[in-house]
Computed example of a mutant assay.
Amino acid sequence: MARYTEAKCRLCRREGQKLFLKGDRCFTDKCSYERRPYAPGFAGKLRKKLTDYAVQLREKQRVRRMYGILEAQFRSYFKRAEAQKGVTGANLLILLERRLDNVIYRLGFANSRDQARQLVRHGLFTLNGRKANIPSLLVRPNDIVEVRETSRKVPVITEAQEVIARRGCPAWLESDGAAFKGVVKALPTREDIQFPINEQLIVELYSK
């Protein structure tokens, strides 16, 4: 599947918000958004009045880029969220949070979702004792995610565990770094997603 391969910091600057795409670097003074908090390009510093459509589009792009998902897949998640009971916007965010690559990132076994996706693709994790190499797998309550025995000395995993304290582990997950294991205690709720997102704008965009 195609992926964005250009400078990730440009995405944060374009969206006017930190998306935490570079892992621990985003918490340091090296963060490009901290040094240049304006959109990239010649007209990046110009103030522009956005239309309602542009505001909705930017919110959708912000969430899509944060989770590292392409447009077709993101729209598929929206349709699934729309078909479920409850609030569509909240359902959408919960589905994104349940992705295996996001769970591995949240548990502190990777510095970013992009890195977590790569580690999953390389087969470094198991889900309920079985090898899992599909980043889009959706976890369920009581699922157990573990680093495979042969992969526990991989440098990026040990480095990620050292910095998880900076972002913390959400309440719906339980991380045991010493055992290289994490447990899904419950499904996430909208309140568990602390990142400032206005999901109603995404619903309005796709409802046009």
Rank of each mutant, 00 (worst) to 15 (best):
E82Q: 15
G129I: 09
A83G: 10
K79G: 08
P141C: 03
Y33D: 07
N102L: 02
S151R: 12
N111H: 07
R58W: 05
E146H: 00
L95E: 07
V63T: 05
N128K: 04
K49V: 13
E146W: 05
S112C: 02
F74E: 00
R98F: 03
F42N: 13
A72F: 05
L50Y: 13
V63P: 04
E59R: 09
D29T: 12
F42E: 14
K79W: 14
Y67V: 15
T28W: 06
S76I: 09
S76N: 12
R106E: 11
A90P: 00
S136N: 01
R148W: 02
D24R: 03
D101M: 06
R99H: 02
Y38V: 09
N142H: 10
V139M: 05
K48Q: 13
R65W: 04
G41P: 12
R98C: 11
R25I: 15
R130C: 06
E82V: 07
N142G: 01
S112F: 05
A116I: 04
N111R: 06
N91T: 14
D52V: 15
L93R: 02
V154T: 15
G86H: 11
K49F: 08
A43M: 12
R58L: 09
R130V: 10
G41M: 08
A110T: 10
F109T: 10
R25E: 10
N128P: 07
Q61L: 07
R64I: 03
R140C: 03
E34W: 09
K30W: 01
N102C: 04
A83E: 10
S32A: 15
R65G: 00
L138I: 01
I144K: 11
I144R: 14
E159A: 10
L92R: 07
Q56N: 15
P141H: 08
M66V: 13
I69V: 12
P155D: 09
K30Y: 02
F78K: 01
K49M: 15
N111T: 08
C31G: 09
Y53F: 13
A110E: 08
D24A: 12
I104Q: 00
L95M: 12
F74C: 00
L96G: 07
Y33F: 15
L119T: 01
V154M: 14
K131A: 06
V55L: 12
R36A: 09
L137A: 01
G129Y: 09
D52F: 14
R80F: 02
Q61G: 00
L124F: 13
N111A: 13
L138H: 04
K153M: 11
Q118N: 07
Q73P: 00
M66C: 08
N91M: 06
P135D: 01
N102S: 07
E146G: 05
A110G: 06
G23D: 14
L70Y: 06
D29H: 09
Y77P: 01
R35P: 05
I104G: 00
A83M: 06
E149Y: 12
Q84F: 12
T150G: 14
L92G: 06
E82Y: 14
L96C: 03
